[in-house]
């Protein structure tokens, strides 16, 4: 004697299964290859997207990685570490020039001038900190 719940289940499952379309589908109209192609296309788009993303991130990061840092460029010019940079110019190619800095003793210096450091630095009260113009140099003012 079947359990009443099992009996009810059996009836409902039978009705459900009778509704399943069982007729064979002609090979030409089968949807599965379409589903396969859709999946392939999705994967292709995903792969291309990932490739572009990697290329874009490389394009951004590689030049930054190959370019020396600002600190390194100052060291290359002979500016000691730990000094106060008062001003730093750059030529048309972005190369540092006329870098004026104050050392730990308070003296102001200039490096990498083109034919000399032709820069004059004054503080807000118009006091000359460094006079690099032609002619006699002013004494650097601490």
């Amino acid at each position: 004697m079947m359990d009443p719940f099992d009996s009810m289940l059996r009836q409902r499952i039978t009705r459900l299964l009778v509704a399943v379309p069982t007729e064979p589908i002609p090979q030409a109209s089968r949807p599965r290859p379409m589903a396969g192609r859709r999946m392939l296309r999705k994967r292709l788009i995903l792969a291309v997207g990932l490739g572009l993303l990697i290329l874009a991130s490389l394009a951004v990061s590689l030049p930054a990685m190959s370019r020396p840092t600002y600190e390194a460029r100052l060291r290359d010019l002979g500016v000691p570490a730990g000094v106060e940079i008062i001003t730093a110019g750059a030529d048309a190619n972005g190369n540092l020039m006329d870098v004026v800095y104050r050392d730990k003793d308070g003296h102001v210096h200039c490096v990498k001038g083109v034919g000399g450091c032709y820069v004059s630095i004054t503080d807000p009260s118009r006091r000359v900190l460094y006079d690099g113009g032609p002619g006699p140099k002013a004494t650097p003012t601490p």
Partner: peptide, 8 residues
């Protein structure tokens, strides 16, 4: 499965 949702 529309066949199932239609019936039960």
């Amino acid at each position: 499965p529309s066949w199932a949702l239609r019936v039960d």
